[in-house]
Design a protein around this nucleic acid. Sequence first.
DNA 1: TTGACATACATAGAATACCGAGGTATATTA
DNA 2: TAATATACCTCGGTATTCTATGTATGTCAA
Lengths: 114, 114
Amino acid sequence: MYMDKNYIGGSSYLLVLSLINRKDMYGYEIIKELELLSDDAFKFKEGTLYPILHKFENSGWIESYSKFSDSGKERKYYHITKTGIQQLVQEQEQWDLFKDSVMKVLNGNRYVLD
Amino acid sequence: MYMDKNYIGGSSYLLVLSLINRKDMYGYEIIKELELLSDDAFKFKEGTLYPILHKFENSGWIESYSKFSDSGKERKYYHITKTGIQQLVQEQEQWDLFKDSVMKVLNGNRYVLD
DNA sequence: TTGACATACATAGAATACCGAGGTATATTA
DNA sequence: TAATATACCTCGGTATTCTATGTATGTCAA
């Protein structure tokens, strides 16, 4: 099913930060991991993810370092900072509030088609 | 708590359509009802809601008619159409997919602050 | 060896959506 | 009489995502 891009907004920071929180990751890996974990519901475009990572780094939420893979390709790994974890906690609270609030509004709905 | 506006996107159509589906409503009433049902988490701005209603009407999802309140103020009521209900069902499916996908990605996370 | 595809990074510009701010008007309440 | 609530509307700024494009290397099959 097609996932409306407008749903991504707001949760994109939470999703990316939560992955980097588990272990140091590089951009391309994050895109693939999001596809894997979400059963292909989230397919972040490079034009979406890389600006997010740059913003995170500028905000001091993550730090980057270079590392070469076995095949010799250079990768830019990101590590979450203490500030980043604080931000992640806030993003998680925001998500919980949002999700619960949508549920409250929708609660009790019945859709009748003919 | 402050609700990040980026979370609204995507769900705004679902929330508004689901309210109009329950009963005919006018714009100002929808804003107040969203505040009430969500415990003030959703406080739609007029600059957000009215363009949405106009878009819905242009798309044929809702129809409007004028009615005066007891106090004499004119209100523009909206009624959902058959097409609108079909759209609502799709929005609901999108929401379920999105919510479940976020849960899948976040599942198992632990945030450790010091 | 050559072409296709995956890996891996990056950015510019277009489209979209929400909000702030402003406008108009009437009713209610202090 | 002034402030607030009700009730509608739109313009422009900001933020975000995608499309498209660019660069470069590694892998694998024809």
